[in-house]
C-alpha cells in the first residue's frame, strides 16, 4: 500500500490535464521533427506562431472569461471592428499614432457594453455576446463598407511584419507578456482567486462579499481591450483591413481554451493549460499543413480532439469500473495515452 501511494504521488503531476497536454506536445514535437527537418527551427516555430498570433492572444483573456463561467462570442467581431475603426480613422486623416490609442479605448468601451448587459441587466453572456457578435461585425461593415483599406504608414505595417526584438515580432512579445501577466493575476492575486470563486459558485461568492459585478465587468472590459489590440496587430500584420477581418475566429479561440482544460461550467482551468493547448494546436496545424492536410480538415481534427478532451473524465470512470478500484499510477498513465 505504502509503495503504491508513493507511485501515485510521483505520477500525480503527470496525471493532471497539464501533464497530459505536455506529454501530447512532446509526442507532437517528436512526430513533426521526424516528418520534416525544418520543423524544429526557430524560424518555423516563430512562423507558426505568427500565422495565428491574434487568435492566441485573445485565447489568453478568454481563459479568464470561461473560468468565470461566462463566454464571449463577440471577441472576433471586436477584433474586426477595431481593425476597421483603425482603417476608417486613418482614412479620415487621423495619424496612425493617434488612432491606435483611440481604437484601444473603443475596444474597452465595447467590452464595457457587453459587461453592462451581463453584469447589471443580468442577461446570460451567451445571449449578449451572440447579439453583439452580430452587431459589432455589422458596425465594422458600416465603417469600411465593401472596400479594403491599405497603405498604412510603414512603421505600422513594420510592427506587424518585421522582427521587433531579436527574431521575435512585436505580437509574439505581446503574447508572452500577456501570458506572464495573466498567469500572475490568475494564480497569485486576490483578483485571480475571485475569478475562480465567482466562476465556481457565484452565489456563495456574492454572500462572501466578493463584488461579482466588478469582477465580471473587469474581465469583459479586459476582453474587449485585448481583442481590439489583437485586431490592430492583425491589421499591422496583413497591412490591410476589410469588413471580414477575423471572421469566425471566436470558435477557434474558444476551442483552444477548452482544450487547455478550462471547464465550460467555470471555476477550473489554468493559464499553463491554455499555453500548452496553444502550443499543441499551433504545432498540430503546422504538422498537418506540412503533410498537406487542408484548413477545413485541420479544424475537423481539432473538433475531434475537443470532444475527446471533455470525454477524458468519462473514459477514466469507465476504466475504473472495468478494472475495479485498484488502479495504479502506471495504469492511469497508460490511459492518458
Amino acid at each position: 500500500m505504502e509503495a503504491q501511494s508513493n507511485i501515485q504521488r510521483l505520477f500525480k503531476p503527470l496525471i493532471s490535464w497539464e501533464g497530459f497536454l505536455l506529454f501530447a506536445l512532446i509526442l507532437l514535437f517528436i512526430g513533426n521533427s521526424i516528418s520534416s527537418p525544418f520543423f524544429l527551427t526557430v524560424n518555423n516555430q516563430i512562423n507558426l506562431f505568427q500565422l495565428s498570433i491574434e487568435k492566441v492572444i485573445v485565447a489568453v483573456i478568454m481563459t479568464l472569461v470561461i473560468i468565470n463561467a461566462e463566454i464571449d462570442l463577440s471577441v472576433a467581431s471586436i477584433m474586426g471592428l477595431s481593425a476597421c475603426a483603425f482603417g476608417w480613422l486613418f482614412q479620415m486623416g487621423v495619424p496612425a499614432a493617434a488612432a491606435v490609442p483611440m481604437v484601444l479605448v473603443l475596444g474597452a468601451i465595447l467590452g464595457g457594453f457587453n459587461a453592462f448587459w451581463i453584469a447589471w441587466v443580468g442577461i446570460p453572456s451567451l445571449v449578449v455576446t451572440l447579439a453583439t457578435m452580430i452587431a459589432f461585425r455589422g458596425m465594422a461593415r458600416v465603417l469600411v463598407e465593401d472596400r479594403g483599406i491599405t497603405d498604412f504608414p510603414d512603421w505600422f505595417d513594420g510592427l506587424g511584419q518585421n522582427p521587433f526584438v531579436g527574431p521575435f515580432p512585436l505580437a509574439m512579445i505581446v503574447f508572452f507578456l500577456l501570458v506572464a501577466i495573466f498567469y500572475v493575476i490568475l494564480q497569485k492575486s486576490t483578483f485571480g482567486r475571485q475569478v475562480y470563486f465567482v466562476g465556481s459558485n457565484r452565489e456563495v461568492a456574492e454572500f462572501s462579499g466578493v463584488n461579482v459585478r466588478r469582477v465580471k465587468a473587469t474581465i469583459f472590459i479586459a476582453s474587449g481591450l485585448i481583442s481590439s489590440l489583437a485586431g490592430l496587430l492583425f491589421a499591422a500584420r496583413v497591412g490591410a483591413v476589410r469588413g471580414d477581418v477575423a471572421l469566425g475566429f471566436e470558435l477557434d479561440i474558444i476551442t483552444i481554451v477548452l482544450l487547455g482544460g478550462v471547464s465550460i461550467f467555470g471555476g477550473t482551468g489554468t493559464m499553463i493549460g491554455t499555453l500548452l493547448s496553444i502550443l499543441i494546436v499551433l504545432n498540430l496545424r503546422n504538422g498537418m499543413a506540412l503533410s498537406n492536410i487542408t484548413g477545413h480538415i485541420q479544424t475537423g481534427v481539432l473538433g475531434v480532439l475537443l470532444i475527446l478532451s471533455v470525454m477524458v473524465p468519462t473514459i477514466k470512470q469507465f476504466l475504473t469500473k472495468l478494472f475495479g478500484a485498484k488502479i495504479s499510477g502506471e495504469q492511469k498513465e497508460l490511459k492518458n495515452e
Partner: peptide
C-alpha cells in the same frame, strides 16, 4: 454527459470537414 456547447461546437467543425 458532455456539455452540449462543446460537443456541438466540435461537431460544427467536424461535420463541415
Amino acid at each position: 454527459k458532455l456539455p452540449s456547447i462543446i460537443v456541438t461546437l466540435a461537431t460544427l467543425a467536424i461535420f463541415r470537414s
